[in-house]
Amino acid sequence: MAKQLISLRVNGSERDCVVEPRTRLLDALREGLGLTGAKEGCGNGECGACTVLVDGRPINSCLMLAVEAVGSEILTIEGLATRDGLHPLQEAFMEHGGLQCGICTPGMILAAKALLDENPKPSEAEIRAGLAGNLCRCTGYTKIVEAVQAAAEA
């Protein structure tokens, strides 16, 4: 109940953050740490806009408590690009028009990264299954699938 100081390992660095036990990882990232890449769409696991990677696993940060993530390695969209440039998935999404309004994009790209980490050459069906938990109301998905295919071939 009381607020507590926790340390989260996000995008390679330890970050202190004040939370309550009920604070969702999504809120700790966005409001505690100012990492607003992860979005809240639905708040109950349906849309995937809040997807981040925890110990390499794609998860809905609206359904995880911040305190549950202590001791884990968290990757948000802010941590994907390096000093040398954007991640190949980010490049591919730009090149192939895999985004319009961009709300779904951080979650979509992280879900796609988890997919490619596990299965570097997915079929179209595997891409669609891997991204079934990420809703997009703009693109119609075809261009997202093409972007992921392009990134897989890059």
Partner: peptide, 9 residues
Amino acid sequence: VGSVQIRHR
């Protein structure tokens, strides 16, 4: 069950 994200939790 659900999506990949749900199944990872």
